[in-house]
Design a protein around this nucleic acid. Sequence first.
RNA 1: CGGGCUGUAGUGUAACGGUAGCACGAGUCCUUUGGGAGGAUUUAGUCCCGGUUCAAAUCCGGGCAGCCCGACCA
Length: 434
Amino acid sequence: MKQSQLFTKVSRQDPKDETALNARLLERGGFVYKNSAGIYSYLPLGWRVMQKIAQIIREEMNAIGGQELFMPALVEKKYLDATGRWSVEVGYEVHGKGEKAANFTLGWTHEEVLTEIVSKYISSYKDLPFAAYQIQTKFRNEPRAKSGLLRGREFMMKDLYSFHASEDDFEKYYEKVADAYRKIFERCGLKAVYTLAGGGAFTAKHTHEFQVPAEVGEDTIFVCEKCEYAENKEISKLQEGDRCPVSLRGSETTAAIPKGHEIASPAARNDGKRCGGRIYENKAIEVGNIFPLGTKYSEAFDLKFRDENGKEHFVVMGSYGIGLGRVMATVVEVSNDKAGIIWPESVAPFRAHLLSLGGADGSSIYEKLQKAGIEVLYDDRDLSAGEKFAESDLLGIPWRLVVSPKTGDGVEVKRRNEGKSKTVSVTEALKLLK
RNA sequence: CGGGCUGUAGUGUAACGGUAGCACGAGUCCUUUGGGAGGAUUUAGUCCCGGUUCAAAUCCGGGCAGCCCGACCA
């Protein structure tokens, strides 16, 4: 894409009244536009990042058998009445003009909707297990939207739901999803800590969150320095300075640690006894969560199956969420410098940022890059070198290519996260970027 | 939902109760071109409603909005 045609522009100054780094950098760069507090438009650059994140999530969800679908954003009252969640305050009630009472809510979660759908198709143990997910806008009536994209009233979420014939089967899948989540966050360039937590409005059981340590985070977690075992402060009995309670190899699992948790960290498998590492307190951003739902929703919608003996049972369920905007904002929070964002290659809006300086024409290189299938943003505008460099740094595209009278037939290549550049032939540059 | 702070061109900011100014941006023209270039010229603003006053961006009341703290929360 040619930058001269990009309708958004970067701003030199931070937006007023915005302290969260992700909001400042993403708004300045023209990745997002704030329409209202906690409500954002994703502009072309930001939307490309979201698509990259969505694609990574899709690949990992599909890899564990997730079937993608798409459910309504308008959820009829009857669904939430079935579980007594109509009155939960996080929802926005909606009604048509002229109707007195709200008969719908803007979907803030979809357990009920999907469970009802599934109940029309599932009848035998042979139909289980399976999992389905969607990537969709969720609406939550946040009393206080804050921290840029981190807590919004409207946000893109991937929600996966799984359906099982037994608790055992569910638990196996739960671990599978946890692994998929680890891959997703790693691929997005995030170091997420698997954290034991509470379940809020979704379940009375313990759940797990994926937390990325960051000052701006609104959660507090206790993390073991050694094995990375972590608990959310909301439910934890730990304190900073405590010794890690995890029993390694799971042979001495304490009551506080749910089954399966002892394999949270590969490091934990190398030792035969208690971990004993020091516990640290950290602020963290919750980028994903996984919930056991038990039979709460299947009971509400009479979702049953018959086993081998013809006996009826309720389906055991789990739900698993990732906030896409929150992932994007978290990447910005943990990957930046004074000049701007440093996108990991996996989620960057473009792979290369080509700048032409001093009236040089970069169009032939631009075409070659495009022909080679490399996503490139070409800054073909008539601006000073300093301005182009500064904007390029702010946008944070991983590879910067410069053509100018100085570079002759070659092209100067620099990575966003490195200081030095080198001038190479165009062929060489294409090879580097492949 | 409680508390605090703040609302002035597109953005960031100034103005004692008395002429709304500056910078950046944007438009046009010329000159420039390796770390946010220079000149000329144009553009555009006091959140809303009410009150006090000869006079309100400024003081008062009420809304609305934004940010931050708390409560709440995927």
